[in-house]
C-alpha cells in the first residue's frame, strides 16, 4: 500500500522533472481546485491541510471548496460545475455521491481538466486516478481488532456484537460495514444482534448506543463506522462504566475519541490518512496536468491506533495533522 503510494509519487517526481527540467520550476500560475464533501468536519479540514502543504511545497495556488453538509449532493454538483467553468489547472474532488458526480467529473475530463478523485469514488472511469482509503480493508481490520480485544478479555472469540452506521446511502460507509461483516464470518462465535443507522447526529448516536446496551446486556463488542457514532458509543460505555467490559472499535478520529482510547473505553481506532489524500492529491493533480499517467487506483492506507501506539510519532500525524511530518521523499 505505502509502496504503491511512493511509487506513484516517484512517477510524479519523474514526470515533473521531465516536463520542467529546471529544479525550481515555477507553478505560481497553476491553480488547483480541491473540492471536499463538507467543509465543516475535522476530516475534510485535514484534507485541506494536506492540500495546502503540497501547494506550499510546489508554489501553486489552490482553492478549497465544498458544500457545508455531506448530505448536500446537489450543492457539490453545483460547486463542481462552477469549478469546471473557472478552468483550473486540475481538480481534486471527493465525490459525495457516486452517481451524481459521475457526469460532472466526466465533463471536466472532456474539457481537458485532469481530475484526481480522492476518498470516495464516482461511477465513471473518466478521471486520472482514484486516491483513497480502502474502506473494505478498514472494515476487515476493525473486525480483527474486535476479535482480538474480545479474546483478550473473555478468553474466547464469542459473544454478541452490534454495529452502528452513521448515515444511509454513503458508499464509503457501506464498504466499511461490508468489510466488517465479511471478516466477521471468520469468527463464527461472534453474532451480530443489533444494527442502527443514524443521521450523523451526535445525540442520536448516544441514544442508539444506550438503547443497544439496554437491550443486549451481554454485548461484547461494538463497531462504529465513523467518529460521530464512535463518540456516541464511547460516551454511552463510559456513562454505564462498561468501558472495560465491551470492546469498541471506531472508524476515524476525533479529539474525544483520542481521550477514550487513552482511558481504555475505545480499544482501537481505524484511522485513514486524509492529510495524504490532500497532499498527494494536489501533487498528482499537477503532475497529471503535465501529462503524467497514474494507475487507476492508489491506496492511501489505513492504520490501527490503540492505547499501545497512540503516543508514537508515526501515529501523531494521523491523529493531529499539525504534527504531520512528511517523509524525506515527499517533503522538499
Amino acid at each position: 500500500m505505502k509502496k504503491l503510494l511512493l511509487l506513484a509519487a516517484a512517477t510524479v517526481g519523474l514526470g515533473l522533472t521531465a516536463q520542467a527540467p529546471a529544479r525550481a520550476a515555477d507553478f505560481s500560475k497553476a491553480r488547483i481546485d480541491v473540492i471536499v464533501k463538507a467543509t465543516t468536519s475535522q476530516y475534510w479540514a485535514t484534507v485541506f491541510d494536506g492540500a495546502r502543504a503540497a501547494a506550499k511545497v510546489l508554489g501553486l495556488q489552490i482553492s478549497t471548496l465544498g458544500a457545508t453538509s455531506e448530505a448536500d449532493v446537489a450543492g457539490e454538483v453545483t460547486i463542481m460545475e462552477n469549478a469546471i467553468a473557472s478552468k483550473p489547472t486540475a481538480i481534486v474532488i471527493a465525490a459525495t455521491n457516486a452517481a451524481a458526480l459521475a457526469k460532472p467529473i466526466a465533463h471536466a475530463t472532456a474539457a481537458g481538466i485532469p481530475v484526481i478523485v480522492v476518498d470516495s469514488d464516482a461511477n465513471t472511469s473518466k478521471y486520472v486516478t482514484f486516491l483513497a482509503t480502502n474502506n473494505h480493508t478498514g472494515g476487515v481490520k476493525a473486525a480483527d481488532e474486535l476479535a482480538r480485544c474480545i479474546k483478550a478479555r473473555t478468553g474466547k472469540v464469542a459473544g454478541q456484537m452490534a454495529y452502528l452506521t452513521a448515515l444511509a446511502g454513503a458508499q464509503s460507509l457501506n464498504d466499511r460495514d461490508k468489510g466488517f461483516l465479511d471478516e466477521l464470518k471468520k469468527y463464527p462465535g461472534l453474532k451480530i444482534v443489533a444494527h442502527r443507522t443514524g443521521n450523523n447526529d451526535p445525540a442520536r448516536a448516544l441514544t442508539d448506543s444506550e438503547d443497544i446496551l439496554t437491550r443486549n446486556p451481554h454485548l461484547v463488542g461494538i463497531f462504529a463506522d465513523n467518529e460521530i457514532e464512535g463518540d456516541g458509543a464511547g460516551t454511552a460505555l463510559s456513562e454505564k462504566n462498561l468501558g472495560s467490559k465491551v470492546c469498541l472499535v471506531s472508524f476515524d478520529t476525533s479529539s474525544e475519541e483520542i481521550n477514550f482510547v487513552k482511558k481504555g473505553v475505545i480499544d482501537a481506532l481505524i484511522v485513514q490518512n486524509p492529510f495524504m489524500m490532500g497532499y498527494a492529491g494536489v501533487w498528482y493533480a499537477l503532475a497529471a496536468a503535465h501529462g503524467v499517467v497514474f494507475p487507476h487506483y492508489v491506496d492511501s492506507g489505513v492504520s490501527v491506533v490503540t492505547k499501545a501506539n497512540i503516543d508514537s510519532p508515526a501515529m501523531a500525524g494521523l491523529l493531529n495533522p499539525k504534527k504531520y511530518t512528511l517523509t524525506p521523499f515527499l517533503g522538499e
Binding site: D201, P202, E256
Partner: peptide, 14 residues
C-alpha cells in the same frame, strides 16, 4: 447537550 455528549459538537441539534 454539551454536558450529555461531554463535548461541543457542531453537528448537535441538526
Amino acid at each position: 447537550l454539551v454536558s450529555r455528549l461531554t463535548m461541543g459538537n457542531p453537528n448537535a441539534g441538526v
